[in-house]
Design a protein around this nucleic acid. Structure first.
Length: 418
RNA sequence: GCGGGCGUAGCUCAGUUGGUAGAGCACCAGAUUGUGGCUCUGGUGGUCGCCGGUUCAAGCCCGGUCGCUCGCCCCA
């Protein structure tokens, strides 16, 4: 049996409505914030991500689906959206207008990882980006957008973790101090953290290893290295969130794994998930445009893991009700009756009803069973009598009442739910 | 990339010290010949993930492999 690729999943008819439920929320809430949808290709030149995300990150080093095309060019299935979106914005000159530009996206992404709960090799993200403004107001806006989507989906029990990485010079200074401190305790760190020390020392801060946690307790604190700009930016963000009544928790250890972040970073967590309890995250990235050859353009954005949102909805029983197969089921039994029944089915569909017919040429009893199972509110019965008299029998499945009316009156018949 | 658990009908699972498979649900058909949901009766359906090994004999033991799952790592 040929199987789907490891870490990929078919989205079956039984779950497709859940996807539309979320997609509709993404679209409508983004729209109320004035964000426009932007779709980039599924694959890009590899350098978009190696330069954008950062050569030191695990995503670039060991998780990308990278291959040479027939012309010998190195291409990569997109592992995230932001770098590709920035590439598109630069190429299409969308951020040259001098005012904030706001975009959202939804689609599949690819990372070669060990599959786990809420972690697939092909997964989906919704995200939004606010470009061309470095004002903290834009940080606040994207957080509000994310919050609105979560609320609209019905999720109320979640945590918003917030932190600031400061500007580049503050962070560079802190980085030095942190490395110095960690070097002094190097032997006590986990193996993972020892190797992280040089490449991405901030990540040691959010290690789950007991040894690391102990050492991190006494590590220098990022906020103490902030200059005026870094401090001001974050103060405005937090005070605005306060006055808007947005609940959040300052998490000094929240550093995020991608190289391009600075200033505000945030993450959404839910206890309804397993070890992968983060279902969304984002932050400010002011240097990405120049990394990708564009002119300096400040930006802030976030992404949700859609499969993880779905997991939360499922766990919390917030998924929409499953749709019935049809509104009206046509039961037609007898010789040469199919033409009549198909004609009636089509008339009803043309007037907007969801109509199913039995395709197995079975007994009336069997077709009635099928009608019952379909969830139809009405059954239309057609047998020899109806065919000969040019009538139809309409049965209300709720109260079992039925009426026989001439075919030509069907278009004016009012189907009333009992 | 590393570690743990698992893989038997469409679904959820049982299968005792190894002797070539069962239940419930679902599905199909009947219970007065044009009618559902309840009940009853009967039936269809499985190369026991795959490959190899041990054995007279393997769903049960051993090895490998693929996949799922949980955790580490990483991240959404």
């Amino acid at each position: 049996m040929i199987q789907a690729i490891r870490g990929t999943k078919d989205i079956l008819p039984s779950e497709i409505e859940n996807w539309y439920f979320l997609e509709n929320i993404f679209r409508s809430v983004s729209d109320t914030f004035g964000y426009k949808e932007l779709k980039t290709p599924i694959f890009e030149k590899t350098e978009v991500f190696s330069r954008g995300i950062g050569d030191g990150t695990d995503i670039v080093n060991k998780e990308m689906y990278t291959f040479d095309d027939r012309g010998g060019e190195s291409l990569t299935l997109r592992p995230e959206a932001t770098a590709a979106l920035v590439r598109s914005v630069i190429q299409n000159k969308l951020a040259n207008a001098g005012t904030a530009q706001k975009f959202w996206y939804f689609g599949p992404f690819f990372r070669y990882e060990r599959p786990q709960k809420g972690r697939l090799r092909q997964f989906h993200q919704y995200g939004a980006e606010c470009l061309a403004t470095d004002k903290p107001e834009s940080d606040v806006e994207v957080i509000l957008l994310a919050n609105s989507i979560i609320k609209k989906a019905g999720i109320s029990d979640y945590k918003l973790l917030l932190n600031s990485l400061g500007n580049d010079s503050s962070r560079a200074e802190y980085r030095e101090a942190l490395i110095k401190y960690l070097e002094s305790k190097k032997d006590l760190l986990s193996e993972d953290s020892q190797s992280r020390l040089q490449i991405n020392p901030l990540r040691v801060l959010d290690s789950k290893d007991k040894r690391d946690i102990e050492i991190v307790v006494d590590a220098p604190i990022l906020a103490n290295y902030f200059d005026e700009e870094s401090k001001n930016h974050f103060d405005i963000v937090t005070s605005m969130l306060d006055s808007l009544g947005v609940q959040y928790e300052i998490s000094p250890k929240l550093v995020r794994g991608l190289d391009y972040y600075s200033h505000t970073v945030f993450e959404f967590q839910s206890s309804a998930l397993g070890a992968q309890d983060s279902f969304g995250g984002g932050g400010r990235y002011n240097k990405l445009f120049s990394e990708l050859g564009g002119k300096d353009t400040p930006a802030v954005g976030f992404a949700f893991g859609v499969e993880r949102l779905l997991l939360i909805l499922e766990e919390l029983n917030l998924l929409p009700e499953v749709k019935t197969d049809c509104d009206i089921f046509i039961v037609a039994a007898g010789e040469g009756i199919q033409n009549y029944s198909f004609k009636i089915a089509q008339e009803l569909r043309d007037s907007g009803f969801r109509v199913a017919v039995d395709l197995n040429d079975r007994s009336m009893k069997a077709q009635m069973r099928a009608s019952n199972k379909s969830g139809a509110i009405f059954t239309i019965l057609i047998g020899e009598d109806e065919l000969n008299n040019n009538t139809v029998t309409i049965k209300n499945m709720g109260d079992s009442t039925q009426v026989n009316i001439p075919h030509k009156e069907l278009s004016n018949y009012t189907f009333k739910i009992a």
